[in-house]
Nucleic acid binder design. Structure first.
Lengths: 250, 250
DNA sequence: CATAGTCTGTGCGTCGGCGCACACGGGATA
DNA sequence: TATCCCGTGTGCGCCGACGCACAGACTATG
């Protein structure tokens, strides 16, 4: 598919003031982000930051015994690699592409320079980080108190918000890994949602039929996080820079 | 007790370059932080930031139905009110004093000014925030996968690290609220630890007898977080400013 | 010393999630 | 078309945590 790509598809990039954006745009590199790719490994160095456009990436913590849990999800609203400008040179989490698509990447050094100008770019990045923190915290509470079914709803909604379509390409096994629960638990919860007419799925394709219904089934965690993202990133000007980066892809 | 107080007891303050510290020191106000006090309410505005010295504060998320969970703990290694400089004017979490003591507070406006100088103070605060993020993320995973007993051990160790003594003043009921579990669950876990000779307690006083033993019982989460804090805040110069703020307290 | 209030111990029944095992079936491949 | 594999459905037994109820036991207070 020769769909047109533009950095504007990423909300953070789109929100940059024109001159900041212009300075960076030549160095933005369009990259495909295939399902399952690991952008960062736990403890690894950060060579690039990524601005997803049509992909979704999960931040995972993996434990010694192999058990894992998603602590946040990043899509076209955000950026991957915050620990770069927060000060640690490495990231403690894994970043795994959870929904294939594209994104723009930027050399770590360049983003750092930009951040250190201490201007609008910095403040935008910090606000986004604040929103991400909220998501992590809410995930912690959700893990403590809510049922697999509620969490599945929350997770589907978070993914939906970051995609243009209402179909997710995603096996139950993968979802289980993200949520840190059993695959069978997901099967059961998903079955319930399907019988209720909220979703339909088969072999790795999930279609959301009734978004409102999902929201009612989900725990409050989804709403809290969404509201905070909206609040923190709402009043940033959606500049929508006119020019397109010469999309140097296959 | 006329114990001497000094801003140096807070690691972040102690790590400030001398001239930055000097600029702030006159505005640092020593305040008592009694057990149970709420420094921030969820959604409230931040009028001050706090640098605990001898107290410990928990960041809690409280849900609609009243259930709660601690997402991070802040003691003399840190600062409360990070959302101030991250960009949100409000904080989404409650901050409750979990262990009584003292701390220094600073008017929000002043810290913001300092942060906006975009110098060492800013970088120190961002590094600390990065460490805090790690703690939150690890808490999320811990909530998902670990038993009440393991989490209790982790929690005791985190508290211990932030106190000079090995005695915590803390009822099981309170601990249960922090961990987001049943009080009876804490009773059971604590009983087990006591029978194993790791701790001793009665009516709100917990004495840690065998720290090494606790570390063995705890899940890896404690170690991961501690290591990351050490890594991120290790190489900050512990300047230990000579002068004392005229401690204007009762 | 008596009393009240708080903190801790303990014993239920219940339930959600886990780990395991295996059956079914659609899609791709040969 | 025959075969294999992967994704999904389902049925166990098990265990940890929950909710509830109540019994000691220590402390503070008058």
């Amino acid at each position: 598919m020769a769909a047109s790509h533009s950095p504007n598809q990423n909300h953070l990039l789109a929100a940059l003031p024109k001159d900041d954006f212009d300075r960076l745009s030549a160095d933005l590199e369009l990259v495909p982000m295939p399902l399952g790719e690991a952008l960062y490994e736990s403890g690894g160095r950060l060579w690039h930051v990524y601005f997803p456009t049509t992909s979704i990436v999960s931040l995972l913590y993996v434990m010694e015994d192999g058990a894992s849990a998603e602590i946040a999800v990043v899509g076209n609203e955000g950026i991957l690699g915050i620990s770069l400008f927060m000060g640690g040179e490495t990231t403690p989490s894994r970043a795994i592409v959870q929904s294939a698509g594209h994104g723009y990447r930027l050399k770590a050094q360049l983003l750092k320079q930009e951040f250190n100008r201490a201007g609008p770019v910095m403040h935008l990045l910090l606000r986004y980080t604040q929103a991400l923190i909220t998501q992590m915290a809410q995930t912690a509470v959700c893990n403590r108190h809510h049922s697999v079914e509620q969490q599945l709803c929350r997770w589907l909604l978070l993914s939906l918000d970051r995609l243009s379509s209402s179909e997710l390409v995603m096996t139950q096994e993968l979802i289980a890994n993200m949520l840190g629960v059993r695959r069978e638990g997901v099967t059961e919860a998903a079955g319930k949602l399907q019988r209720a007419g909220l979703i339909r799925y088969s072999r790795g394709r999930i279609t959301v039929l009734d978004r409102g219904g999902l929201e009612k089934e989900a725990c409050e965690c989804y709403g809290v996080v969404k509201k905070e993202f909206d609040r923190l990133l709402r009043d940033v000007p959606r500049t929508a820079h006119a020019q397109m980066v010469p999309s140097a892809h296959a």
